[in-house]
Design a protein around this nucleic acid. Structure first.
Lengths: 187, 187
DNA sequence: CGTGCACTTGATTGAAGTCAAGCGCTGTGG
DNA sequence: CCACAGCGCTTGACTTCAATCAAGTGCACG
């Protein structure tokens, strides 16, 4: 809970009152390896925060599993489209290590955002940060080589490379397992 | 002004009071062809709305011009990173037709968002919509062929194809002019 | 009327995907 | 306790899509 509050405060500081109201909205799960938080084809009701552990978000495209996101200790994650548009998600979310996860329900969050201007602002800042990240990632996919993307990952999130199987990392980088393997071997 | 108000209301309805406060924040420009709204290396102070005309957002990458976005009548556009992070923009924004453009200054918008909860909510919804779009675009760049991307553009924004030079369209689609030309010829 | 811009066409290259086979570890059942 | 099934990863041969480089065409307008 404390790490969650810290992560929130880092995005947009809340008053004591706002923080306490907000904190009460979150549920907690202790998950096993390969525990499914969100099943494909269901509406994603939660924004999650991973206190400790690893989660991955993936979907199927042409019969293949695509890992869209990997979240480690201290990160927020969700199925953006499903959560905000309230449509069934094509994504699955699972923890790939035993993990501690918090989640806030869509309706609770929207209620809080409606009642507290500062929570609305927090939410806006969270979405803005996501948007900036999304733009950077698009740029990376469009203009960087597989090699460069892997090296950037090594630099920015070495933990992912240590804790996550290569298959997942490859599709997270937008390349095949074979290509990743070749990149790793040549040096 | 009316089209701007309509576009705003479509995202998130505002009270009369909120709408009137908000409306006052916007400036108006009548631009010529190739008029520069935002210069590279300056901080982007405005969110723009194009009432009539065409704007394009571009930057240089390895000595080449990359068109990142094309906005037509009735759309909002901005340099996301620069506007929200208050850092110099690597982007240039220009109207490529004589256009009518509205813009709201960052500081005015933030002030309004701080004073009016409903404007904060509107802003959050705008950013959310952008985020969803950004995700869709990333998916398209990663998994669709040049052919498919062009056909999708033809279907979703036939106006762009009619009003914008192919050079810009090509880099907007993430392909070269030559590839686009070949796609168009074979059929 | 010719200079340049917008676009086309051709030849070649290259990065990464696909398909296929193989290796080595681990854990489970006979 | 060994054997082998399967997972996670590597390696090889081949293909493909689109990029690059290089000319060329046609039209617009100054």
């Amino acid at each position: 809970m404390e790490s969650l509050q810290k992560a929130i405060a880092a995005i947009s500081p809340l008053s004591d009152e706002g923080m306490s109201a907000f904190s009460q909205g979150w549920k907690h799960w202790s998950t096993t390896k390969d525990f499914v938080l969100l099943k494909e084809n269901t509406i994603s009701d939660y924004i999650y925060f991973i206190e400790k552990g690893v989660a991955r978000i993936y979907y199927y495209k042409n019969g293949r599993e695509i890992t869209e996101w990997i979240a480690l200790d201290g990160q927020f994650f969700l199925s953006i489209t499903s959560f905000f548009q309230r449509t069934p998600s094509y994504l699955t979310i699972q923890t790939i290590e035993p993990s501690h996860v918090y989640g806030i329900h869509h309706d609770d969050l929207m209620k809080l955002a409606g009642e507290h201007h500062e929570i609305e602002r927090l939410l806006r800042k969270m979405v803005t940060a996501s948007l900036i990240l999304s733009q950077e990632r698009m740029d990376s996919i469009q203009f960087e080589s597989a090699q460069q993307r892997y090296e950037k990952l090594l630099k920015t999130s070495p933990q992912i490379v240590q804790r996550v199987p290569l298959t997942y990392i490859a599709s997270f980088l937008g390349i095949t397992l074979e290509t990743l393997s070749r990149i790793r071997s040549q040096r």
